[in-house]
Each structure stands twice: as C-alpha cells, then as structure tokens.
Design a protein around this nucleic acid. Structure first.
Lengths: 96, 96
DNA sequence: TGAACATATGAATAAATGTTCATATATGGA
DNA sequence: TCCATATATGAACATTTATTCATATGTTCA
C-alpha cells in the first residue's frame, strides 16, 4: 500500500475533478470538439465566471487545454484518456 | 444537453465517490478480493469509524457490497465496472 | 444471560469547495 | 487611443464533506 500510496492520492484528485456537475458538463460538451468559453456558457446556461473558474480547475488538472484565437479562447479535451474515463463512468451509469 | 442532463448529474455523483483518498484506498484494497472491515482498517491505517463511514458511502453508491460472516462483514467490489473505472483513471495517472 | 469482539451510526467540528459579485486583463476595431 | 468584447481572477459566502468521539447494534461463546 505504501508503494502505490502517491498514485492513489493522485487518482483520488483526478476523480475529484470529474466529480462536479459543472465540470462534467464541460467535459461532455467538449467531446464534440473544441469550443470557446461563450459557447460553453450558453451550453451550460451558467455564469461566465463560474464556467471560467471550473475551466481553470480542469486546465490545472490537465484535462483540458486552451488556445487563443483572437478575443476568444477555445478549449478542448487534453487527451484521449479524458474521454475514455468519462465513457467508462457513463457505462456504469447507463447499465446499472 | 437537456436530454442527457440527468445522466451527467449521476455521472458527477459517481466520480465524486471515487474522488476521495480514503475511498480510493478502500477500492484499491478490494481489487485483490473481499476483505473484512478490520483488515481494511489495518490496510489503510485509519480509524474503524472513518473506514465504516466511507464504506457506507461506497455501499450506497453501489460500488461495494457487504456480506456478513459471523461477527465480521466482508466487503467486495460490487461489479467489474468499478475496477474498470479505477484502472482507466490509473492509466491516466501513470502515463502522463 | 453476560462479556467480548466487530461493525455501524449520530452529532459536532474543521476544512474544502462552488458560486456570485466586482473587477482586472487581453484583444480587435474604429 | 478609446471602446466593446471575451475571458480570467480575487474575495466573500454558503454548502458540502471527512474525521473524530461517543455510543449503539449485532454476533459469538462461555
């Protein structure tokens, strides 16, 4: 248990990031492909500030990345693992 | 987004349960096979009460199940999805 | 039945977390 | 340069949550 302890702590942190409805909605919304913040705000029907705060958490956790194009910043899922984890979880929800 | 809204909320709840170090350690410990509470307490080096409280949360979320054998209660992972989700997450941690 | 062991549970507390509000920063166009 | 738009950020507040402590429940055995 001591050997893998740190990985387990990181793993809990990772799932913690997935474990919020706003962030899960952002991830779901980005499965289609990259979107700018305004589009996400419309999709989620939440305040720009709230979405931005959660995007920062997702970015810090390296689950999403952002690229600027003019005034807008386009976010996308950072790698395929993100989608894979999302889908494994959804599988568990759908089949019960 | 409205169609899948409830699934997304459930999904966030699911990940929230994975997103705690005590519960992740319990899940990890149960990958080997079923264990009683005392063994888990020793494995995690935490109070019996804390472990019990987290076991209840895991049980409510249907991630683990318990069966009584005499004075002891043996817990095990409830289905294969639990291990699959755990492993998908770990993959993301290990590869970086 | 009573003692000892194993586990669960309720209340209290401290810490973590998400949203809001106000404001700051950055970019493009007039 | 000034303004409008897009996004980020800090502080404050309310809520959630994990642990501890004390105690309750359930089981076995003498």
């Amino acid at each position: 248990m001591e050997k893998i302890e740190n990985e387990l702590l990181d793993l809990a942190e990772l799932f913690k990031v997935f474990g919020d409805s706003t962030r899960i909605k952002i991830i779901y919304s980005l499965i289609d492909g990259e979107k700018n913040v305004s589009t996400l705000v419309d999709d989620l029907n939440m305040s720009q500030s709230a979405v931005s705060h959660q995007l920062r958490i997702l970015k810090t956790a390296k689950l999403v990345r952002g690229r600027r194009d003019g005034k807008a910043i386009y976010y996308s899922l950072d790698d395929d693992h993100v989608k894979a984890i999302f889908e494994k979880g959804l599988e568990h929800i759908v089949h019960g």
